[in-house]
Amino acid sequence: MSDLVIEQPVLPKISPATDAEIVTYLRRSCKFAEIADLTERDALILQLCEQYEVTVSDEEWQAAGDAFRTEHKILGVAETYAWLARQRISVEDWSEGIKVRLLARKLKAELFGEAVDSYYLQNREEYQRVALSQILVLNVTDAMKLAKALREEQASFCALALEYSKGKQSQENGGFTGVRFLNELLPEIAQAIATAIEGEIIGPIHTKLGYHILRVEKRFPPELSETVREQILDTLFEFWIQENSKAKMLDA
């Protein structure tokens, strides 16, 4: 047998992308508007911070930087510089990013911190979480067969999800879709599982995605954790921005 020799191609040398080239890339990949929105959001936050006299002390800034590095496991000086080099940003760029995020958090707390508790108490049930499994199929006949097998033949949910589910996450993870807040779920699904007991087979439930067979693995009662607090602050802030934008448009 003769050896087949494939000539290795010689890749041309490419210089690191310039800022202008990156902007061009964003335009042609249709990501420009998304990044522009985020840029404008930062500008808005900085102006609002000035308006409401929200500032960051050096200690807070340093602590936020330390927290970021702990979270990303960038613990030493050398590792930090190596990480910055991989990100192609300077310490100043990174520091500014940390500062803007910190200012945004302080601004939201300044504007809506006092309202978080009452908003949470009024919408408490939405912050219930469930560990949820599902099998998603596209036609009702398949869905009915699978539900019957699960209810009457004690078939394995995991095995059926691996074989039949058309949902990417549920197919890959044997049906398990993760721990989700009720308010993140499609309304039909949230309603279907509202009173379900753990382990019960629910469905098929019809949504725009297809037919879902569901199982609540575990329920987690609502709790005003730090994550939920941040979520509520974001919700109230976004609502406030939207209302103000509408009012501005009407005035114009």
């Binding site: 702990t70 613990l75 030493g76 000086v77 510089y81 310490v91 520091s95 500062k99």
Partner: peptide
């Protein structure tokens, strides 16, 4: 301005 202390957070 930048964050100045890059030693190990503890």
């Amino acid at each position: 301005m930048k964050i100045t202390d890059l030693t190990s957070p503890t």
